[in-house]
Design a protein around this nucleic acid. Structure first.
Length: 553
DNA sequence: CTTAGGG
DNA sequence: CCCTAAG
């Protein structure tokens, strides 16, 4: 409770007192703060399901912050005042808040380091009024703040500086609040399994600062396990933060428009490595592992061994979908980074089986046409924010709510994609197999495009090549293929036992009628004349179907 | 573009 | 499933 309000107050204060700082105030920090706001707010709720509107309000706030032009502090204030949550925060009178506002009334003060810092960014360095309250901080070598600064020297991320600014302003009066902020954050960090690097990093700053500056232990501080400090972000993550593009831009999978939309020159659309500084908020969003506890797994035999990979896939999917809603330019930029994060996360997911991992990497590097279908799907940005920002450990109802909401915006295809498929792999349903068999019965083998058009028009995926491949697999599965060593084939057949007998049988029948590789044209006429002999081999229904196909053609 | 076949 | 060669 204190945390969200504290953040809000900080934002307010920044916007009022240091509007210029938004220029160099990394968006990542803003969004992270927003996430904290949300997280803090979540904790206030007893029933996670009942948050409904307020939940959205929080997100809207985050959105408005995100959309905020960095130079504008006005929009921020507007959004702040518009949000009931925040308004309540402003009205509620709590001791810590009093401290906060007292701190805000103190004339702005910065030490020399920060001044140098701001001038380094070519900004207008605001006049440094020194308050007697902060005189002691003048001494750089001894002041706790400078200690913290030195400590953070290894983080070149400017967010550290900016955040430090906030802390500087409040650090005496805000210490208790910082402590409050500190502990829950640690909790959250462990929940995220250390994957939320960005948050963790800032968290570290807070924790460090709190440790250094907090001389007067507040009573409630003891209720939280302070020693449980958040995990140090990996060097790799830090590197990626410093240069998110150079490392992964080449690996990144390009996102182009859907193949079904008629874009066929996707290979020419490959984006070169772009040296564009990405909006940092994207990183914070994408760095979060998105849990989906209650997703229905229709026909996904793959077990939880790949849950990590899949969930990261989902995250990527969602962010991409969200991006598709923004301007294409932005989309490209952000997608670059999405790919980067995606790759990183996958690399970190040690639990994935090696084979699958390899597939994923390969898939991520290549441009897959089919995947582009997903990109065309539009999702409400708000939904994405909710999903990506919401804390881990979603209750079942929480996930259900989100799933429901997303279903409103996802097409059947992509929702199926989310839960049933790994990467560009869509499992063949029994119904599809039946349709395929019917199609083959109708048109024979080889006319896959026609079969696709007539039997699979509903499903945009399943190209004619897919049909052919599936038929080939069916033949293999039904053991018709013969020719090879029977023993080996039999053994291999055991792998895909789940195929229904009826389907297997029909495949066998059709295979005898239409030998896959070639040469069935003559057979058809042949069958027609020799049907009495053949009828012993095939069922009546098959025979009728064959006749029908013949007549139809 | 479609088909066939290999990976 | 993906890619590519061939018609």
């Amino acid at each position: 409770m204190g945390m969200s309000q504290w953040i809000v107050s900080c934002v307010l204060m920044i916007s009022r007192r240091m509007p210029w700082r938004w220029k160099r105030f990394p968006a990542i920090l803003v969004l992270d703060s927003m996430r904290e706001v949300e997280v803090g707010y979540f904790r206030m709720q007893n029933d996670f399901c009942s948050m409904g509107e307020e939940y959205l309000l929080g997100v809207e706030f985050a959105e408005s912050i995100t959309n905020l032009d960095y130079g504008s502090s006005e929009g921020l204030q507007t959004s702040v005042s518009d949000s009931p949550v925040l308004a309540s925060a402003a009205v509620t009178d709590t001791p810590w808040k009093a401290d906060l506002f007292r701190a805000m009334e103190v004339p702005e003060c910065q030490n020399h380091q920060l001044n140098a810092d701001s001038s380094r960014f070519g900004e207008i360095s605001d006049p440094c009024h020194k308050s007697e309250t902060f005189v002691e901080e003048e001494e750089p070598s001894k002041s706790p703040t400078s200690c913290a600064l030195q400590d953070m020297g290894k983080f070149h991320d400017i967010s550290s500086c900016s955040f430090q600014d906030i802390l500087d302003e409040n650090d005496t009066s805000l210490s208790p609040s910082v402590d409050m902020l500190h502990s829950p954050k640690n909790e959250k960090s462990s929940e995220f399994g250390g994957l939320t690097g960005q948050t963790g990093e800032i968290k570290r700053f807070l924790g460090r600062d709190a440790l250094v500056t907090t001389s007067a232990p507040a009573s409630h501080t003891n209720t939280f396990p302070t020693p449980k400090r958040s995990r140090k972000p990996t060097q790799r993550y830090i590197d990626e933060l410093a240069d998110p593009l150079s490392r992964h831009s080449k690996k990144r999978r390009e996102v182009s428009s859907s193949k079904s939309l008629g874009v066929k020159d996707h290979k020419k659309c490959r984006l070169g490595p772009r040296a564009i500084r990405l909006p940092a908020e994207e990183s914070s969003v994408k760095a979060i592992q998105v849990p989906f506890g209650s997703l229905v797994q229709n026909e996904c035999p793959e077990s939880c061994a790949y849950d990590m990979v899949r969930s990261s896939d989902r995250g990527n999917l969602m962010t991409k979908s969200k991006d598709s809603r923004i301007s294409s330019e932005n989309q490209k930029k952000k997608d670059v980074f999405a790919g980067a994060i995606h790759l990183k996360k996958r690399d970190d997911s040690v639990s994935a089986a090696t084979q699958k991992k390899r597939d994923d990497n390969v898939a991520a590097v290549h441009l897959k046409k089919r995947e582009d279908n997903v990109t065309a799907v539009h999702i409400k940005k708000r939904d994405d924010n909710i999903t990506a920002v919401s804390p881990k450990k979603p209750d079942d109802c929480d996930a259900t709510v989100r799933q429901k909401k997303r279903d409103d915006y996802l097409t059947a295809e992509s929702s199926e994609e989310v839960n049933g498929r790994r990467k560009h792999h869509r499992l063949w349903t029994i119904a599809e197999v039946k349709k395929l068999i019917d199609g083959v019965a109708e048109y024979g083998v080889g006319r896959w495009s026609r079969i696709k058009k007539l039997f699979f028009s509903a499903s945009a995926h399943r190209t004619s090549v897919d049909l052919k491949d599936k038929w080939r697999n069916l033949l293999k599965a039904s053991g018709i293929q013969s020719q090879g060593s029977r023993q080996g084939e039999k053994k291999r057949n055991m792998a895909w036992r789940p195929l229904p007998k009826s389907i297997l049988r029909r495949v066998c029948e059709l295979a005898t009628i239409y030998p896959y590789p070639k040469g069935r044209k003559t057979k058809i006429a042949h069958i027609h004349h020799d049907s009495p002999d053949r009828s012993t081999d095939i069922t009546l229904g098959d025979y009728r179907r064959i006749l029908r196909s013949i007549n139809g053609n």
